[in-house]
Design a protein around this nucleic acid. Sequence first.
DNA 1: AAGTTGACGACGA
DNA 2: CTCGTCGCCAACT
Length: 110
Amino acid sequence: MGLHKRVYEIVRRIPAGRVSTYGQIAALAGMPRAARAVGSILHANPEPVVIPCHRVVNREGFLSGAFAFGGPEAQKAMLASEGVEVSEEYKVDLDRFLWKNNSEGESEGW
DNA sequence: AAGTTGACGACGA
DNA sequence: CTCGTCGCCAACT
C-alpha cells in the first residue's frame, strides 16, 4: 500500500492549466505499469477537494468520462477556466498542456 | 475470504 | 501502421 498516497501527492502537484496522465502519475509513483491502480485510486477519490482529478486524463488526452465532480461538462469548464483548451470531444492537447515534472521549458513549438 | 472488474498502459504479433 | 493480449494495484461484489 502507499501507492494511493503517492498518487495523492503527485496529482496534488499538478499545476493549474496543466494536465497529467495516469501512466505519468503511475510512473512518477514508481509503478509505470500500474496506471490502472492510479485510475482505481482516483476513482475512490479520497480527498476530492484536494485532488484535482479533473486534471488527470488518459494517455490520449481524453477525459476520463466518469467524472466525479458533477459531469464531463463541469470538468471541461473547470479545465477551460484554468487555461486548458478542451475539445468538443473532451480531448486535451497533450502536446501543449501535458504537465512535465521536469522544468524543461514548455517546448513552445506552437 | 476469494474472485472479478476497472478513470489505463505498454508490449507483441 | 493497427489489433490483440498481458500486466498492474486497488476497490467492489
